[in-house]
Simulated scan of single mutants.
Amino acid sequence: MRSAALPLLVLALSACSPSLDWREVRLAEAGALALFPCKPELSSHAPTPAEPARMGLAQCKAAGFSFALSWAELPDPSRVEPALQQMREALASKLQARAEAPRPLQVPGMTPNPQALTQRLAGGEQHAQLAVFARGPVVYQALMLGPRYNDTAWDSFAGSLRLAP
């Protein structure tokens, strides 16, 4: 019995993708915490007259998928709800994607908003899983993009999102 179980255990352990090396990343500028399956590159932009929002992006690629968390601090808090909707619509348009019905989203530390949603998009050779949410005037978009859906990786990434108090 033991000798039969050993190959099954080895097979089960090898099914865990070594290319997804999950690590906790604290994004101080964004006030966020997330698990990424690779070391993300960070970039940020200070407000300018042409773009009055403070913005940032953490992104990396692993196992054929791109993972990203972007954020922008809007100068007008009344623009948060429309911005969340526009973020989802802009990605669907860019990918020329068929969008599944969005589902409500809860991220610890977020400000409740009816446009805080998670959604799957299928466009040609690209499949996206995204979440949009906000805290105060800061809007966030978490995104996983790849050749197919990967619900396990998405659940690890999106389920890890936290906003610092």
Results as ranks from 00 to 15, higher is better:
163 L>T: 04
122 A>Y: 05
93 S>I: 08
124 G>M: 07
60 C>E: 06
21 D>A: 15
54 R>P: 00
19 S>T: 06
96 Q>F: 09
46 A>S: 13
18 P>S: 12
65 F>P: 02
141 Q>D: 01
101 A>W: 00
81 E>D: 14
92 A>W: 02
163 L>F: 02
130 L>R: 05
142 A>I: 00
84 L>H: 09
125 E>K: 13
76 D>M: 08
92 A>C: 07
45 H>S: 15
8 L>E: 12
28 A>H: 15
156 S>T: 08
117 L>F: 07
39 K>E: 13
7 P>E: 08
135 R>L: 01
109 G>R: 06
30 A>V: 07
30 A>F: 02
77 P>I: 01
13 L>Q: 13
151 D>M: 07
17 S>R: 15
129 Q>G: 00
154 W>S: 01
145 L>W: 01
122 A>V: 13
13 L>S: 08
152 T>R: 14
139 V>I: 14
115 Q>I: 06
81 E>T: 12
20 L>K: 05
123 G>I: 04
60 C>K: 12
148 R>V: 08
70 S>A: 04
88 R>T: 02
153 A>Q: 10
123 G>T: 09
46 A>K: 11
155 D>H: 11
158 A>C: 03
127 H>T: 11
142 A>D: 01
59 Q>N: 03
82 P>F: 03
131 A>R: 04
75 P>S: 12
98 R>L: 12
24 E>S: 10
164 A>T: 11
67 F>V: 04
119 Q>F: 02
154 W>Y: 01
98 R>V: 12
43 S>E: 07
61 K>F: 04
52 P>R: 14
96 Q>P: 05
137 P>V: 07
156 S>D: 07
80 V>G: 01
65 F>D: 04
132 V>R: 05
93 S>V: 09
59 Q>W: 03
37 P>Y: 03
128 A>S: 04
93 S>C: 06
141 Q>K: 11
130 L>V: 05
21 D>T: 09
27 L>F: 10
141 Q>L: 03
105 L>Y: 04
